[in-house]
């Protein structure tokens, strides 16, 4: 990795803006979610898209893949999907008399895991392990995944029949959890009157490659985080541990992840320092799925309540 370039070099920022612009042209009326998705990729995190079907989860994932000029694989998670279906298998080759590893779809840079909650827990954990460690193990042999490795997973939270919701502890693997929501009226009109999304997708030009992503990541690490901001972040974390409706508050790792995402968000907003606004924008997508609420409590409501309660230093 090269030495961090001065942030004043706007080349990558301009390319980033162009990429964001491009995805926005496909996924109408969702600039925040698009920016969150970019943020997640810049911060080297995995993204969980959560919403009812038909609001554009897949479109977003495709647009990202097209914009990022990365190898792209898509896996449809179903109840009979096996771990080997995503990681790959070792096949005995009669010619050489040896086992040869046939890599599964996971060996890619950008992986879209569709309806992740439909797969069995065993399969889910195979994916999640790979996400956490950046490697996959088959028959005792460890195979490194290409770097960077991003997972964009989708799930439908409202439909639980025949599904295996990701356990709370596993949600931690995702840096951000983003809901897409229904488009607003204007965006929906544009959507209905415009061209077929699939056609637009086909026309997308890759604007960011792996190197650019690396550079953006490096730049995000170089953003300034002031003591005052750290105080605020710490107060937020402490508040989650104090809240009566939360069984388990945010871990320090969750705090680090929130900070990394906030840095990337600040970069995507064109700043080389992090503001409380950044943390507030990222708190619900980055923290709410990591809170383990008590019975009958609603995660996002709690997260928003905490934001409303903690004073900005």
């Amino acid at each position: 990795m090269s030495a961090p370039e001065p942030i004043r070099d706007n080349t990558f920022k301009r390319r980033l803006d162009a990429g964001i612009e491009q995805v926005n042209s496909v996924l109408l009326g969702k600039p925040r979610q698009v920016k969150l998705a970019f943020t997640c990729l810049i911060a080297r995190g995995h993204l969980l898209l959560e919403d009812v079907p038909g609001v554009g989860k897949t479109t977003l994932a495709h647009a990202l893949a097209a914009t990022f000029d990365l190898d792209f694989q898509r896996i449809q998670f179903t109840s009979d999907l096996l771990p080997s279906d995503i990681i790959g298998v070792s096949v005995y080759e009669r010619d050489g008399g040896t086992f040869r590893f046939h890599p599964g779809p996971i060996f890619t840079r950008l992986l879209l895991a569709d309806e992740i909650n439909r797969a069995s827990p065993k399969t889910q954990s195979a994916l999640l392990e790979a996400m956490a460690e950046g490697q996959a193990t088959v028959d005792g042999v460890t195979h490194a995944l290409p770097q960077p490795f991003f997972v964009v997973a989708t799930q439908n939270p409202l439909d639980l029949a025949g599904t295996f919701p990701l356990p709370d502890s596993q949600l931690d693997r995702f840096m951000l959890r983003v809901s897409l929501d229904y488009p607003d009226a204007a965006a929906e009109r544009a959507l209905l009157s415009g061209a077929d999304r699939r056609d637009i997708l086909a026309q997308l030009q890759p604007t960011l490659d792996g190197a650019a992503l690396d550079m953006l990541h490096t730049q995000s690490l170089a953003t300034t985080v002031s003591p005052a901001l750290l105080d605020y972040l710490q107060a937020l974390l402490a508040a989650t541990r104090r809240h009566p409706d939360i069984r388990v508050g945010l871990s320090p790792r969750a705090g680090l992840s929130l900070l990394a995402a906030s840095r990337a968000w600040a970069l995507a907003s064109g700043r080389d320092y992090v503001l409380p606004e950044d943390i507030q924008a990222l708190f619900v997508p980055a923290a709410s799925h990591r809170l383990i609420p008590g019975k009958g409590a609603h995660r996002e409501a709690i997260a928003r309540a905490i934001l409303a309660e903690v004073a900005v230093g």
Partner: peptide
């Protein structure tokens, strides 16, 4: 304010 509070360590 943002500059002096958050843009520097």
């Amino acid at each position: 304010y943002n500059h002096l509070t958050y843009a520097r360590s």
